[in-house]
Amino acid sequence: MAPIAQTLVHESNGNATVGAMGKTKSGKQLKVRSYPKFDHLEDEREYRKQHLAAAYRVFADRGFDEGVAGHISVRDPILTDHFWLNPLSTHFSLIRVSDLILVNEDGDVVIGEEPINAAAFAIHSEIHKARPDVHAACHAHSVYGKAWSVFGKELDMVTQDSLRFWKDHTVFGSFGGVVLDREEGRKIAQCLGGGKAVILQNHGLLTVGETVDAAAFWFMSLDKTCHAQLLVDAAAQGSDLKKTFIPEEEARSSFAQVGTPEKGWLAFQPYYDEVMAKTNGSFLK
């Protein structure tokens, strides 16, 4: 996790995050939140679990739950071929740190007393194996993500927020039923490549990140971008309205402002704060 921590610290001291407004009028440096530094890996493990539990709560608030479908994983910083997941039948809105399940790369439960979603293991295990840079992955059957996935198309770069996914998302263009086979998970990981998101045909969305915070924010933003795309296409259908696409040069420069791992981490922090305030920190137990 050192690379993103270093990047965040560097950006908070320079202009990349705070830009021309990095100091007060009197010249005092403004404080920008950054990924914390840890003296012990056990502390980072606890941090990752806390933010994983919060991400589930955030997903529940936004209606990304649907029965036992959907899952978010985070890599363990000590046992790096293990990852934490939700128990199969606990609602996202109720998940606490103590509920989280640790599984190894063979799908064996190492810590916890409940089973996990088999599809979660099939997908997440292969992504974590294929992408050492990825420490978290999110998958859920959100309404707008499902709706857009039916078309099997990448998103148009027509809004500023869509630029978070400029040349950084793909489409897994086949539906093979419920993902229970690790071979299907390998195919999804291969399709994802080095990107942050994949649209799963007739299925839903999947996002990844160097932190669970970034992966969760990318998911929320991707679902909203699918919503905007559906509205734009509906408005344009049968009318003389024409879509204006964002030029390549502007897309490239804007991606550097809104689509980097540190920006994803930072963008999730207000949602973490919201969960803390709503629950009085009860999810940390």
Rank of each mutant, 00 (worst) to 15 (best):
A2D: 02
T7Y: 07
V9N: 12
H10L: 05
H10N: 08
N13T: 14
G14P: 12
G27E: 04
Y35A: 15
F38C: 07
D43F: 00
R45I: 02
E46D: 11
Y47F: 14
R48L: 13
R48T: 10
K49Y: 01
A54S: 07
A55V: 02
D61G: 05
D65P: 06
D65Y: 09
G67I: 05
G67Y: 02
V68D: 06
V68F: 14
H71I: 03
R75F: 05
W84N: 01
N86E: 04
T90H: 15
V103P: 01
N104M: 03
N104D: 12
D108L: 09
E113S: 14
P115E: 15
A118Y: 00
H124R: 01
I127F: 04
I127Q: 04
H128E: 02
K129A: 02
A130P: 12
H135D: 14
H135T: 13
G145A: 08
K146V: 05
A147Y: 03
S149H: 13
S162V: 03
V179Q: 02
D181G: 11
D181A: 12
D181T: 11
E183L: 09
R186P: 03
Q190N: 12
C191N: 13
K196A: 03
K196Y: 08
H203E: 02
H203A: 01
E210P: 01
V212G: 03
A214L: 02
A215G: 08
A216N: 00
A216S: 04
A216W: 00
A216T: 01
W218R: 05
T225G: 00
T225K: 00
A228W: 00
D233V: 06
L241F: 14
K243H: 12
E249K: 14
E250Q: 06
S254F: 10
V258E: 08
G259H: 13
T260R: 08
E262K: 08
L266V: 10
F268T: 00
Q269W: 01
A277Y: 07
N280V: 05
S282F: 00
